[in-house]
Design a binder for these strands. Structure first.
Length: 343
DNA sequence: TCCTATCATCCGGTGTGATA
DNA sequence: TATCACACCGGATGATAGGA
């Protein structure tokens, strides 16, 4: 395992002064044992015989994945930081003398969850808990998307052309080249926004306007337009729907439930600019819609970036699900801690 | 002692930033 | 622009730990 400096002193001080001990609060407010059932059901294998080394506690392993998303650390870093930090050990319920899972064990655990495709189930199970507690009200919903940058590939033009066609370049095929193929992301795509180039995926989310909790999400490559995923995000629970002008269009209106009030921004066109009234309407809508930007800001600043380091859509989707779930945990402890009007 | 999950290590591969 | 060091991902395999 590699050990190297990752957190500088400023990080530590910032964390201590601004957040107190967030991990302690995560343990206080999140009922981790609620996830034990689904994790055991999915991961526990039938014993093939007597004996065998016992696996690490699945809930503890799951908490490690949340730690990784909260602090944006790799598997190797997670192993090192758990050994190094008492706050991490306390969060996981480990004593100083306890064995810490190897970086590869963490990788394998995540891989099992990806293969079983249960991170969505876990995410929506937590959303249901929040609905039952009436923390999510659906009095207003906001839809938006953000780029999730992935490691940029250095493919040749010909290789990129093949990938665009949905094929795998021949040079990556074959027994000898299986390592190369496993390192190549053929699902991530390029996209440009505000003259900035992005490579990777998109996290399309719907949040509850009042609590700023994520209630639904979907993932695509970065090249898919925001509006294409709207139908997957809206549902009958939505009463008022907010979104920016990227979601304007004839087909789009069809997927909005009839009872839902449409508060999507109006869009100006060439030779048909917005009127003063339309601009004023957009400004009024913006006051609510902007709340979704706070979600992305928390992910960028507090959770140290919206990125994935994995390869392929399945793993990226799992990592994005974990990221959204971690954000919801974070937001939940904030709401529970203050017990004050939502900021 | 057996069985098997996990560990340790190696290898192949990519991306990024510093430097010349 | 090329090269290098470093950090990291993903997979394979033999060794090891620990319960029955």
């Amino acid at each position: 395992m590699k050990q190297h400096g990752f957190f500088d002193e400023n990080d530590r001080l910032k964390e201590l002064s601004a957040l107190g001990d967030p991990l302690e609060k995560l343990n206080k407010y999140i009922k981790w044992d609620n996830f034990r059932g689904i994790l055991n059901k999915t991961l526990k294998k039938e014993a093939q015989g007597p004996g065998g080394r016992p696996p690490f506690d699945y809930v503890m392993m799951f908490k490690i994945l949340i730690l990784q998303k909260l602090y944006n650390v790799s598997d190797d870093q997670a192993e090192y930081q758990i050994k190094d930090r008492l706050s991490f050990q306390r969060f996981l319920g480990l004593a100083l003398c306890d064995t810490v899972p190897d970086a590869k064990t963490i990788w394998h655990f995540r891989e099992e969850l990806v293969k079983a495709n249960i991170l969505d189930t876990i995410f929506y199970r937590f959303v249901r808990q929040l609905e039952e507690q009436e923390i999510i009200s659906y009095s207003g919903s906001i839809v938006d998307a953000t780029f999730v940058d992935a490691p940029r590939q250095r493919n040749s033009k010909a290789e990129n052309q093949k990938i665009k066609e949905g094929k795998v370049p021949e040079e990556w095929e074959g027994k000898k080249k299986k390592h190369k193929k496993s390192q190549k992301d053929i699902d991530a795509r390029w996209a440009t926004k505000n003259k900035e180039r992005h490579y990777g995926y998109k996290d399309h989310i719907k949040i509850d306007a009042e609590s700023k909790l994520i209630t639904k999400f979907s993932t695509t490559s970065a090249a898919v337009h925001d509006s294409q995923e709207l139908s997957k995000l809206v549902d009958e629970k939505d009463n008022i729907l907010y979104a920016d002008s990227a979601y304007v269009g004839g087909e789009i209106q069809k997927c909005i439930p009839r009872k839902a009030k449409n508060r999507i921004h109006e869009k100006g066109y060439r030779n048909r600019p917005l009127t003063k009234t339309q601009k004023a309407n957009n400004t009024r809508k913006s006051k609510i819609r902007a709340r979704v930007e706070h979600v992305f800001a928390t992910m960028t600043n507090t959770m140290r970036g919206i990125v994935v380091r994995s390869i392929g859509m399945a793993r990226a989707h799992a990592n994005i699900a974990l990221m959204n779930l971690t954000y919801n945990f974070w937001r939940y402890i904030f709401l529970m801690r203050g017990k004050r009007a939502y900021a």
